[in-house]
Simulated scan of single mutants.
Amino acid sequence: MSTHRAVIEQFNEGAEHFDSWSVTKDERMLRGLAEFCELSANDDLLDVACGTGALALYGARRVRSVTGVDISEGMIAVARRNAAERGLANTSFVCRNVERLDLEADRFSVVVSRSAFHHMARHREVFAGMVRCCRPGGRLCIQDVMAYGDEKKDRYFEEMERLIDRSHHLTYGKREFFELFKDNGVKVTGLFESESLLDFHDYVEHVAQTEDSRRAIGRLLTAGLADADIATEFAEHDGRLVWRRKVCTIRGRKADRT
């Protein structure tokens, strides 16, 4: 199955569950990202791979207008419903393949993508489209999980990610995020590295699982917990197993016209 088809099928099927997932609705994380992007009342925000619109909807009360774009019709339908229920008239959601962003060039003062680049095989094309849509002098931001930078850990956790989420492509490293900005002439103006403690079993169930997939995940988890190197990225928190996941949030500024 192609990456596109896997993403579309998975997120069409699981849009409602994804929308209610604790990580999707984490207001502390949404507030932190909005502040990092320096959202203001004069901004026109583009949320790329917006899912069910959590960031777009959070930002809508802080900016002039918001557009969310996602490849999944199911996700977009939930985002539109959520916007209507909140009475947010300054929002627009469109279903598009984000590798070919055909939105107006130089239109948005802030272009952001949250927790999505690990799904993207053609991440360079996605970021180039984000830059094209950003107005000169505007801000671009990516927030996503980040590779550990340790070959053994990365090999193990990439296998785990793919068992849990068939639409997962690759967890990129900090250097690869920096290269996206550099290669597109976007000056990096902010970097924040953090650690997210994901409730492991909650994370497993944020997408639909079969009994076979749960057994495979369980076997890999048991092997990881028995390995001293891998086990350091797991911990117990309030009686629950948590997975330590590095997160990279990077912001840049598109050059002004000369």
Rank of each mutant, 00 (worst) to 15 (best):
N12H: 07
E13K: 08
G14T: 09
A15K: 14
E16R: 13
E16H: 14
H17F: 04
F18D: 05
S20N: 09
S20Y: 08
S22D: 11
V23T: 04
K25T: 07
D26N: 14
D26L: 12
E27P: 07
R28F: 08
M29L: 10
M29Y: 12
M29W: 11
L30M: 11
L30Q: 10
R31Q: 12
G32W: 12
L33R: 01
L33Q: 02
A34W: 06
A34Q: 08
S40I: 09
S40W: 07
N42C: 14
L45D: 02
L45I: 02
L46W: 06
L46E: 02
D47H: 07
V48E: 01
A49H: 02
T52V: 12
A54Q: 08
A54C: 10
A56L: 05
A56C: 06
L57H: 13
G59E: 08
G59M: 10
G59P: 13
G59F: 13
G59Q: 12
A60F: 08
A60G: 06
A60C: 06
R61N: 15
R62N: 00
S65T: 06
S65I: 05
G68H: 01
G68R: 01
V69F: 03
V69E: 03
D70R: 14
D70L: 15
I71Q: 00
S72N: 03
S72E: 01
S72I: 03
S72M: 02
S72Q: 02
E73Y: 05
G74T: 04
M75E: 00
I76V: 15
A77Q: 10
A77N: 10
A79Y: 00
A79K: 01
A79F: 00
R80L: 00
R80C: 02
N82K: 04
N82C: 00
A83S: 12
A84I: 00
L88A: 15
L88K: 15
T91Q: 06
S92E: 05
F93T: 13
V94D: 03
C95I: 11
C95K: 09
N97C: 05
N97V: 04
L101M: 11
D102S: 04
D102H: 02
L103C: 04
E104S: 13
A105F: 15
D106S: 11
D106G: 09
D106Y: 07
R107F: 09
